[in-house]
């Protein structure tokens, strides 16, 4: 059910050209996916996705829209090549899932190997009940440090781009042709 809603939202995103609506719809999409994550037992992820997808990114998009205008112009040409690429990729993926273990199967390899260790040993080794936190901050704490760095890198990037006055609007003099 959720998935169907998601699919509908996706199609809506594709068609609508008023970007305000699209951003709102993207927020809805995020919330729906957060719902999906909850259903799939990924409560932490759902929480985060709701905060990020529906919260931060919506705010950022709205800010960007305020600056960049909110109407999307009609594409000038039929996007056949992208369509082809997308279909190809999709078919490849579907083909790939053919041999994938069935959804939700408890015997799937994913759930064994290291996952078992986390679930069985983490309380003993780390002492906190939320396994996700254990894995996030300890077993794979280094990934999280990388994640923190990514966020920091994004801040540096945004600062580099947006700090200071609006610069060099149209400055053909400073540019060189390459034709």
């Amino acid at each position: 059910m959720l998935l169907t809603l998601l699919a509908a939202t996706g199609l809506g995103l594709l068609r609508i050209r008023n970007l305000f609506a699209v951003v709102m719809l993207a927020g809805v999409y995020s919330l729906l996916s957060a719902g999906l994550f909850t259903v799939m037992d990924a409560v932490d992820v759902a929480f985060t996705e709701a905060a990020v997808g529906a919260g931060i990114s919506t705010v950022l998009f709205l800010g960007a829209l305020a600056l960049c205008g909110h109407h999307e112009s009609r594409p000038g040409h039929t996007p056949l090549l992208p369509l082809f690429v997308v279909c190809l990729t999709g078919i490849a993926l579907v083909y790939g899932t053919m041999d994938m273990p069935p959804f939700g199967g408890a015997d799937n390899p994913v759930h064994h190997h290291v996952a078992d260790h986390y679930l069985e040993e983490s309380y003993h080794e780390i002492g906190i009940p939320n396994v996700v936190t254990s894995v996030l901050a300890s077993y794979r704490g280094y990934d999280t440090m990388g994640e923190t760095t990514v966020v920091f890198a994004a801040a540096v990037g945004v600062m580099i781009l947006l700090i200071g006055a609006r610069t060099r609007r149209e400055r053909p003099g400073g540019e060189e042709g390459d034709g």
């Binding site: 932490d44 929480f47 985060t48 905060a51 906190i128 939320n130 996700v132």
Partner: peptide, 13 residues
């Protein structure tokens, strides 16, 4: 965050 969903990231947000 140790007991329920959440943690530094969500709190920061």
């Amino acid at each position: 965050g140790d007991y329920s969903p959440g943690g530094g990231f969500q709190a920061g947000v």
